[in-house]
Computed example of a mutant assay.
Amino acid sequence: MAKRVQLVLNQDVSKLGKTGDLVEVAPGYARNYLIPRGVAVPTTPGILRQVERRKELERQRLLEEKQQAETRKKALETIGRFTIAKQAGEKEAIFGTVTNQDVATAILEASNQEVDRRGITVPDIHKLGSYKVDIKLHPEVTATVDVQVVPAKGGE
């Protein structure tokens, strides 16, 4: 069996790796496809140092993102309760439902923090009352806040 060759990828290759990854491939694949097309370069000590440096910078960036998400979580949970006004009918039933966009708007108005509505998990809300809503701020950070649904005043 032929020896494997180590390369560093210059661009994403499906089923092989992402840009900057260190991969081992068959020598023919490297010699005939990856290197001539500029998709990868052979490893040298200098390139290995660059790869390590890039990985360290990426790790620090991800750590910083997580810390920012933790700070936002603490701020949201300190406020704790957000109020959404909905037009209500009999037996405290609301017209329509409370959507993740409604929650995102209420958070923006109350705290001046913009939250991605796609990261908000809202239970089925069809009546007035208080509900728990999960907000995913980061893959590892989720905040839980109370949403108070109250009747709208007048003709809203």
Rank of each mutant, 00 (worst) to 15 (best):
T83P: 01
A93L: 14
V39A: 04
K132R: 15
V23N: 10
T83M: 07
A106L: 02
E140M: 04
V149H: 10
R117E: 12
L16D: 04
I47C: 07
Q11K: 08
L57V: 07
V141S: 05
T83I: 12
M1S: 14
N112K: 12
E114Y: 00
A75V: 14
E140V: 00
A26N: 13
V51C: 02
I135G: 03
Q68A: 07
L9H: 04
G155E: 15
R54V: 12
I35W: 11
R49P: 10
T19L: 09
T121V: 12
V8K: 03
R72S: 05
A104K: 02
E65P: 04
R81M: 14
T83G: 01
A40L: 05
V5D: 02
R37W: 11
Q67M: 08
I125G: 04
A26S: 15
R117S: 13
A93I: 03
E65I: 03
S14T: 13
G129W: 01
G46F: 00
V122L: 04
V39K: 00
P151A: 05
V39Y: 09
A106I: 01
Q67K: 14
L16C: 06
D12K: 04
K74T: 14
T99Q: 04
V25R: 04
P139Q: 09
A93K: 15
N32G: 05
D21Q: 05
V141F: 02
E58A: 13
Q68T: 00
V98S: 00
D134T: 06
R4D: 10
G154S: 12
A106G: 09
H138V: 06
L16E: 07
L137S: 05
K3V: 12
V23E: 06
E92H: 09
L63T: 10
Q6W: 11
Y33R: 06
D124I: 03
N100P: 08
N32E: 01
E24H: 08
T43V: 15
V145P: 00
G119M: 05
T71A: 13
Q50P: 06
A40I: 07
D21S: 11
V115P: 10
V13Q: 06
L128T: 09
R31D: 05
I79Y: 11
T121C: 00
V147I: 14
R37F: 07
P42D: 08
P36I: 09
T97E: 09
R4T: 11
R81N: 10
R37P: 10
T144D: 06
D134K: 13
D102V: 01
L7C: 06
A30D: 03
K15C: 02
D146I: 10
A85S: 10
E65Y: 00
Q101V: 14
E92K: 13
Q101T: 13
Q67T: 10
I135D: 03
I35Y: 07
Q60F: 14
T43A: 02
I94W: 09
K66M: 14
T19G: 04
N10I: 05
G155R: 15
A110E: 08
V25E: 08
K74V: 14
G28C: 09
A88R: 01
K136T: 11
A30W: 00
V51P: 03
R117P: 11
T71H: 15
D116P: 09
T83D: 08
V145Q: 12
D21P: 02
A2E: 15
K153N: 12
H126W: 08
V8Q: 07
D124H: 06
E156A: 15
E92D: 15
V150L: 06
A143D: 08
E64H: 11
L128R: 00
G17C: 06
D134M: 11
V149D: 08
R31I: 03
